[in-house]
C-alpha cells in the first residue's frame, strides 16, 4: 500500500466523519443530498459482497465495515431521525438518481472482468460511484448558501478521489505495469466531475467569501 492510497482512504474516512459530525452535532443535514448518500450505500453493498469470502487484510475488512456502516447510518439519520429529517432540503434534492442506477447496471452487464454476480456487481458499483456525486453537486448549485461543513465534505470527497488517481499512477509505474481499465476509467471520470466544484471552492477559500456555485 502506497502513501497516496493510505492518504486517500484516510481522507475518505475524514469526509465521512465531517458529515456525521455535522449531522450529529448540528442535528442538521441541510444541503446534503440524500440521493447521493443512498447511492453510496448501494455502491458499498454491491462492492463489498466478498467481504467475508475473500480475505485481503484486516485493514480492508475494517474499512469496508466502516464505509458500509457509516453510509447506512447517514441515510438512516436523514430519513428517520425526527429532528434531522426536518432539515433535509427535500425540495432542492430532486435529481432522478434512479436514472443513474439502470445505465450503470446495463453497462456492467456488458463491461466486466467476468460474467459472474460478484464481478458484474463490482463493475456496477464502480460505475455508480463515478456518478453518485451528481445529485449532491446539483443540490449545491440550487442551495443559496452552502454551509462550510457541507462544502468541506464535498471537497474532501474530491481530494480522496484525486489521491486515488495518484495512487493508480504510482502503481502503474512502480508495481503492476498494466492498466486496470474498469476502476481507472470510472475513477478518472468521477474525479473529473469535481473539477468545477474544486474551482469555485478554492476561489471562495482564497477570496474568503461564501462558497457559491453558478446555477
Amino acid at each position: 500500500m502506497n502513501l497516496f492510497r493510505l492518504l486517500g482512504d484516510m481522507t475518505h474516512l475524514l469526509c465521512i466523519v465531517v458529515l456525521l459530525l455535522k449531522i450529529r452535532t448540528r442535528k442538521s443535514c441541510a444541503g446534503i443530498s440524500l440521493k447521493t448518500q443512498e447511492l453510496y450505500v448501494i455502491v458499498f453493498l454491491t462492492r463489498y459482497l466478498d467481504l467475508f469470502t475473500m480475505y485481503n487484510s484486516l485493514y480492508q475488512i475494517v474499512m469496508k465495515l466502516v464505509f458500509v456502516g457509516t453510509s447506512i447510518g447517514i441515510v438512516w439519520y436523514m430519513r428517520y431521525h425526527k429532528v434531522v429529517k426536518q432539515t433535509y432540503s427535500k425540495n432542492e434534492d430532486t435529481f432522478r438518481h434512479y436514472f443513474l442506477i439502470l445505465p450503470c447496471f446495463v453497462l456492467a452487464l456488458f463491461v466486466h472482468l467476468d460474467f459472474t454476480v460478484v464481478e458484474v456487481l463490482w463493475s456496477f458499483s464502480l460505475y455508480l460511484e463515478a456518478v453518485a456525486i451528481l445529485p449532491q453537486l446539483v443540490l449545491l448549485q440550487r442551495s443559496r448558501n452552502i454551509d462550510t461543513l457541507t462544502g468541506d465534505y464535498v471537497f474532501l470527497l474530491g481530494v480522496y478521489r484525486v489521491l486515488y488517481l495518484l495512487n493508480w499512477v504510482y502503481r502503474f509505474f512502480m508495481e503492476i505495469h498494466q492498466i486496470r481499465w474498469i476502476p481507472w476509467v470510472s475513477g478518472f471520470i468521477q474525479t473529473a466531475l469535481y473539477a468545477d466544484f474544486f474551482y469555485y471552492y478554492i476561489k471562495s477559500w482564497k477570496n474568503r467569501e461564501k462558497l457559491k456555485l453558478p446555477a
Binding site: 492510497r5 482512504d9 466478498d50 480492508q60 463490482w122 495512487n167 508495481e175 503492476i176 476502476p183
Partner: peptide, 10 residues
Amino acid sequence: GPSSNPKDEL
C-alpha cells in the same frame, strides 16, 4: 510484491 488481485483496493 505487486498484487495481481484487482480487488486489493477499497
